[in-house]
Design a protein around this nucleic acid. Structure first.
Lengths: 335, 335
DNA sequence: CGGCGACTGAAGGGAATGGTTAAGAGGCGT
DNA sequence: ACGCCTCTTAACCATTCCCTTCAGTCGCCG
């Protein structure tokens, strides 16, 4: 499988004709046909078949068309980026869990680039198990993730060629629901506060964002440990959307305490007392040790413990200016 | 630039040593060194330099490490998918604008896969200008996007090798804000309803999701036409987050009317009367014509106009079951 | 049925890739 | 200064890639 072969197939898939693809690539028809033939043999799929008035992609051909276009485009984009990398701008790729990438990283990076205006940033949302791999593969410069706060536990001294973890903020996760949530039975109301025994967790309706059940995060670990996930949990496109549904009274959610304090104060949400909560966690930034770390990564590692950074995380989410906005990229793991 | 060369560089970047990379790939050191040398010449970058205790990537090398790992992984994943495509499952790739992908596509696809349980779906969020390209490149099977509702305009009959558009739902976009929003001055309150002259739009604080200013969508077109975007608009990680900030009274937002009716009824949001609003739009699904369309795409095209589909879009967002959830992929354009 | 357009296959050749072994270059520690 | 380890270069070879021209095959259409 070669980039040239993929390019040929992309052209065929797009133009619907070997001849047209050959012309658009500036080569002869057999060149294109041959490239496709190699792919056919290697993948064991016809890829496309001749049909009245043109060609039709097989299911495998459709997958390949999508993947090949992606690969070819990515290759060209990478080439371009490397060429123009050296000089001016420094780049920072931040990997985080879904929830962290949505709620924590944006304000933190906004404060960071305000102090380092020349740094370009990219945010990657990945399952927590992939964070270490991404750092080791140099696909990310730093990782930001929540871990369970183990009382009294001291982090082991980092070895020379492993990762360094820098905790920078304690967080508390609480179960929240609308005060009018119908799922919480009256017999669990005590002194105006909703109570819920631990065994009932898996029978409630949970409203979560993507990655809300990631067992590598304190929140996902708590939920899966108590059977949520096998039960009916609804996954929303974002944590904010899940919280919005909780406000509407559709069920329970698990939220970072200080991020919902407005809703709690206005009474649109209320904390549900559940044994084992609040779940204590610590946000930490991880990076490679020593000189295997990019300058921008080092700058962020120093930045997260400053008062400016902490303040950006504790104030209400405010969005970022249009020209600072960079979309979060979801990275799949294939390994 | 070859996949083998990229694989070699990925190994070097990850392991921090040519020797280790050679061992892990099962080849000799000069094989790896040579592959890197070709990349170096082609890209005009040292990629990495020897340094005390190992090697250090240059800025270009860091970019390449990230891109190469992505490319290699994607190539392998694509190979795997094509191999196991033919038989069983059919796949549907849905492209949509950011806002549509977040708010419209999930409930629609949830209803669709409930009727067609064997269909796997993937959602792609892209700028509106890229939707057509994605369809032509076969990177997406169908596109779902809002367009301005032009009263009386009749869609031109689709040519044989162009796209077919099927409108399926009228929507209205309204400007919303918290009733306590401080930005709206009292002199614009009339009969308990907030009014705002059109010239003031660009001086208000806007709270939008990604793609909220996409000029190819009715909403983004409306906002950019009136100067929003040059002014201070805050971009949130999701449309839900932007709406949440609007509820908190941080500014104005533009929302699909029927998607915020709960908030309007409960009084947490109110419609701001702005000349030119509500903005009328139509959601439509686009696909290639005739036989250049996959079976799953045809099924979705037929499905969207059914009462079941419309009902799924009009009821309140409910999330999707855990095992139906597929993350939305953000696709970059490189063309 | 014959013609015609379009895809496929068969040589063939030049260039690259991908690999080897052997030797040189350069940093690091003792 | 010396040896040691690692990366790099050089020379070289088999294989594959990539493109060409030429010939063949398939299906549509008049």
């Amino acid at each position: 499988m070669t980039l040239t072969q993929l390019r040929a197939f992309v052209a065929v898939a797009r133009l619907g004709s070997v001849k047209a693809a050959a012309i658009s690539l500036g080569v002869s028809e057999p060149a294109v046909s041959g490239a496709v033939a190699v792919l056919r043999r290697e993948l064991g799929d016809r890829l496309f078949v001749r049909v009245a008035g043109g060609i039709t992609l097989t299911p495998g051909g459709r997958r390949l068309a999508a993947g090949a276009a992606e690969i070819v485009g990515l290759a060209e984009e990478t080439r371009r980026q490397v060429r123009q990398a050296g000089a001016d701008s420094s780049h920072l790729r931040v990997a985080a869990t879904e929830t962290t990438a949505e709620q924590i990283v944006p304000p933190l990076l906004e404060a960071f680039v305000r102090r380092h205006p020349d740094v370009e940033t990219t945010t990657l949302a990945v399952p927590s198990t992939a964070l270490g791999e991404l750092l080791l593969d140099r696909r990310a410069d730093v990782a930001i993730s929540p871990v369970a706060a183990e009382p009294g536990a001291v982090a082991a001294a980092p070895g020379p060629d492993t990762l360094e973890h820098i905790p920078f903020l304690r967080i508390q996760l609480v179960v929240v629901a609308s005060p009018h949530h119908t799922g919480a039975r009256p017999d669990h109301v005590d002194g105006g506060r909703l109570h819920l025994p631990i065994g009932r967790l898996s029978r409630e309706h949970w409203l979560l964002g993507p990655g809300g059940l990631d067992p590598g995060t304190p929140g996902g670990s708590f939920l899966t440990r108590h059977g949520v996930g096998d039960a009916d949990a609804s996954i929303f496109p974002s944590t904010s959307a899940a919280l919005g549904a909780a406000v509407a009274g559709d069920g329970l959610s698990l939220a970072v305490l200080h991020l919902v304090r407005d809703e709690l104060r206005h009474g649109t949400l209320t904390v549900v007392a559940v044994p084992g909560t609040p779940v204590n966690g610590v946000l930490r930034v991880s990076a490679l040790c020593g000189d295997r770390r990019s300058p921008a990564a080092s700058a962020l590692c120093r930045f997260v413990t400053t008062p400016t950074a902490v303040r950006s995380l504790l104030t209400r989410a405010t969005g970022v200016p249009v020209d600072h906005y960079r979309p979060t990229v979801r990275v799949s793991l294939w390994s």
